[in-house]
Measured scan of single mutants.
Amino acid sequence: MQRVNMIMAESPGLITICLLGYLLSAECTVFLDHENANKILNRPKRYNSGKLEEFVQGNLERECMEEKCSFEEAREVFENTERTTEFWKQYVDGDQCESNPCLNGGSCKDDINSYECWCPFGFEGKNCELDVTCNIKNGRCEQFCKNSADNKVVCSCTEGYRLAENQKSCEPAVPFPCGRVSVSQTSKLTRAETVFPDVDYVNSTEAETILDNITQSTQSFNDFTRVVGGEDAKPGQFPWQVVLNGKVDAFCGGSIVNEKWIVTAAHCVETGVKITVVAGEHNIEETEHTEQKRNVIRIIPHHNYNAAINKYNHDIALLELDEPLVLNSYVTPICIADKEYTNIFLKFGSGYVSGWGRVFHKGRSALVLQYLRVPLVDRATCLRSTKFTIYNNMFCAGFHEGGRDSCQGDSGGPHVTEVEGTSFLTGIISWGEECAMKGKYGIYTKVSRYVNWIKEKTKLT
């Protein structure tokens, strides 16, 4: 034993070699072989497995989906700052455009905790909710729209109204504003409101030439003092309507412009014939205590009207009353817009006519005020429907199939267009061939041609 100890002390290297040989010859039971080890760690190889990531292109799944990435790591994937920024906006807080917040056709661009709407022409605001041009839906104005110097929408209202708090709607500024039905039992019968379409306001006024200088022999019209197929109006439903009495009662109609003036057809009036105007009328054979009678003290036909040349060209006249009318729910003026808007309103496509005229061709006159909704007829169809001249200051309205029309005794009465609950004068009943005849239409004086003249002559002093 002493000898062994001496050998170990003198030859430590020998001992180490012996131990190493023993270990190498022993069977290893701690580690699995290569094949079995792979069965336990069965993990798919990654895209760049075996390579240094710093030297390969980034992978979106590896960089940002398996674990949260930084902007720089995302930049490695896209290799483009702009594309990385677009991805980053949604990656950080989701897609803010998912709810489609942009209105009126706006395009949404996502941002971090926010979004941006790219608005089409005519709109602005956070969600493109603000109209900035009158060309689109009248700028959301209830009545009139004008573009300011910086191309912003400025709404306005006709006389007797003021802008509401929203700067879009119009509200009454006087007790009985024009064009409004205020009798409670008839307010439910107000005709369907007309909503502004998209309009090209630059070209809204037709490029028409008034044929002022045409000389033409007097034409022989049949029954051209021209509501057939209409309905009984309720008291106060058309408070701007008046009836004219002269040699015979209810020979023509008219509309209240203001307390002192009536507008009617020029062919209705004769110099030297006494005319009485009755406002607030409903049943011409009954006294309903809503009527107001006034005498006409002055007749002003349009300066281009000449019955000797043509009885229905420039067929418009103004009547001055001896005493002002007292405005109330049964006696209310009709609204008159400017030339541009009167023309736009007419193009809405349908209007209402009213009167006490004959209820059928050569038949009896109506006792109760009649009204009828009539569609506008395109000019080409209008011209083809008659052998008589249709001037540019006239328009056609009615039904091709016949059966409904204005008729004798309705002449001078109103053709009105309702705009968001307020009625505007767009025409004056003038003439036609018979009444409600198939293929024939009622012919009306186009008020847009005469609004400046009306307003100039009827100013209240």
Rank of each mutant, 00 (worst) to 15 (best):
P44E: 10
E320G: 02
P172K: 06
S107I: 02
S448H: 13
T445Y: 05
I136T: 03
D33C: 04
V257E: 00
V273E: 14
L24H: 02
G363I: 07
C252E: 00
M394S: 14
D338H: 06
G160F: 02
G105H: 13
T133R: 05
R3I: 12
N304M: 09
A192W: 10
L325M: 04
V278Y: 04
N306R: 10
E288V: 08
Q96G: 13
K89F: 05
C268Q: 00
G398T: 05
F221P: 12
Y22I: 15
V195P: 09
R294D: 00
K45F: 03
G94Q: 09
A266M: 03
A192L: 12
G253R: 11
F87L: 06
K438S: 14
E72R: 15
A26N: 01
A307R: 11
A9H: 08
T81R: 14
C69F: 04
L14Y: 04
H361Q: 04
N393Q: 08
E270H: 09
Y352C: 13
L383S: 08
I390S: 13
V374W: 15
A308T: 13
E10S: 14
I297D: 03
Y441F: 11
A37C: 14
I454C: 00
T445C: 03
G349E: 08
Q241D: 03
L41D: 15
F238G: 02
C252D: 00
V377H: 03
P101S: 14
M394L: 13
A164Y: 03
T287H: 04
V257G: 01
C18D: 01
N59G: 04
L41E: 14
T158P: 03
T461S: 07
N38Y: 10
L383T: 14
N222H: 03
I17L: 10
C28V: 00
A279F: 01
G427H: 01
C117E: 03
G253Y: 05
E433R: 06
I454H: 01
V278T: 10
A317C: 07
N166L: 02
S169P: 00
Q2D: 04
I210K: 05
V92P: 09
I17V: 08
A317M: 03
A307F: 08
I454W: 00
D95C: 10
R379L: 15
Y22V: 06
E67P: 05
H400L: 12
R358H: 13
I299Q: 12
S220M: 06
F71Y: 05
T417Y: 02
H361I: 14
Y305S: 02
H361V: 15
E27I: 01
D150G: 11
N38Q: 12
Y47S: 12
G229E: 10
A149Y: 09
V377N: 02
K188C: 13
T381E: 10
N42Q: 09
E61N: 07
N343S: 13
I454S: 01
N258S: 05
L23C: 04
V416T: 14
S184D: 11
G427D: 00
C252Q: 00
E61P: 15
I275D: 01
V353A: 08
T225F: 05
T417C: 03
K51W: 02
T81G: 08
V419S: 05
Y47P: 06
V153H: 10
Y312T: 03
G398C: 02
F87A: 15
A337N: 01
W261P: 00
G432P: 13
N48H: 07
S220R: 03
N42H: 08
D200R: 10
F31E: 15
A233M: 08
I443A: 12
K457I: 09
V227G: 09
S49N: 15
I17R: 00
K39M: 11
E54P: 06
I309C: 13
S204K: 10
K146A: 10
T190I: 10
I309V: 11
S156R: 06
G439E: 13
Y444M: 13
E73A: 13
D338N: 07
L103Q: 08
H314A: 09
T215A: 06
L24N: 01
R83H: 14
V359M: 15
P235S: 11
T458A: 06
S99N: 14
A279V: 03
V195S: 05
E54M: 07
D111L: 15
I443N: 01
I284V: 10
G432L: 03
G253L: 06
R162Y: 11
E208D: 07
N283S: 03
V4I: 07
V359F: 13
K459M: 13
E116V: 12
W453P: 00
N59A: 07
E53Q: 04
K347M: 14
L41R: 15
S156P: 00
V377C: 03
K457V: 14
R75Y: 11
L346D: 02
L346M: 06
C69V: 04
P414N: 11
I334G: 00
